[in-house]
Amino acid sequence: MDNIQKFMAADMLSKKVSALQKSLKADAETVLEPGDRKSVSFDLDGEKVVLGAITRTKPRTTWKVTDEGALTKWIQENHPDKIEMIPVPKEWFVKSLLDQAAANGVSVTDDGEMVPGIDSVTGTSYASAKPEKDADEKLARLVAGGVIQTAELLMIEGEAA
């Protein structure tokens, strides 16, 4: 397999593994109580091979702001010296300035007024996998036929899985 083929197969497999892991984690959370720890092992020709442990953490309580408006109002009324008044441009106006800059190809209003702080920015390019509609069946056939070997794909040494 070339790198492009490996990328496509790996992307598809990672999505399948991620979905399986999410489901199994949810199941483990129904089996384990907070604070529980369960060792995970397999039998290999009579030898107990421990891979690790699954732990369900105890919940932690933390404090956070859940209603910033209510908190700000309370501070403003009860501790006005602890409030910072920060000017913020209105979103609709900023959007109109961005639209004008896009239409004009330069950071100016339709009236020709130069607008500082607005520039054109080019994003980065990235690769993404987009499997075909029937790619799952095709992937299964390729794996079953030995064309895609998961051990090779995942760079696991030893026999092909």
Rank of each mutant, 00 (worst) to 15 (best):
K133W: 09
P89R: 11
S39L: 06
E113T: 04
L142P: 05
D136E: 14
K64N: 13
W63D: 14
L98N: 08
S128K: 11
A70M: 09
K22W: 07
W92T: 03
D45A: 07
S128M: 08
K133M: 07
I148M: 04
H79V: 13
P80S: 06
L97S: 11
K15A: 14
L32G: 13
V17N: 00
L71F: 11
M85C: 08
L139P: 01
V121E: 03
E157R: 00
S23N: 14
D27C: 15
M114A: 10
W63H: 07
N3G: 12
E77T: 10
T72F: 03
L13H: 01
T150Y: 00
L154F: 01
L20V: 04
S107R: 02
A28Q: 10
I54N: 04
K90L: 06
D43N: 05
M155P: 00
G123T: 05
L71Y: 09
S14Q: 09
A127I: 09
G35A: 12
L20R: 14
E137Q: 15
T66F: 14
E33P: 10
L142K: 10
K16M: 15
D81R: 04
S125N: 03
G35E: 08
Q149R: 00
T109E: 08
F93Y: 15
A70N: 14
G52F: 14
V106R: 13
N3T: 10
Q21P: 00
V49T: 09
E33H: 03
E68T: 08
E68K: 05
D99L: 15
I118T: 07
Q5T: 03
G52V: 07
K25G: 09
A26R: 15
E91K: 06
A9S: 08
F93I: 03
E77K: 10
L44S: 13
T124E: 02
S128D: 13
K73P: 02
R56C: 09
V121P: 00
A160C: 02
V31F: 10
V50Q: 13
I83D: 07
R37C: 04
K90V: 07
K6G: 01
L153T: 05
D81Q: 09
K82P: 05
G35P: 04
A102E: 14
A28T: 11
V143H: 01
W92L: 02
A28F: 13
I148D: 01
S96L: 14
L51Q: 11
V50A: 06
E159L: 00
T109Y: 06
I118S: 11
L154W: 00
R141Y: 15
S107T: 02
K133T: 11
T124H: 06
R141S: 14
E77V: 09
K25P: 03
L97Q: 13
S107D: 08
W63T: 13
V106F: 02
Q100Y: 06
P34S: 03
T72C: 12
P116M: 03
D2I: 00
E91F: 09
D81L: 06
M1Y: 04
G46R: 14
I54F: 12
E157W: 00
V50G: 06
A28G: 15
V94R: 05
G145M: 01
E68N: 12
V108N: 01
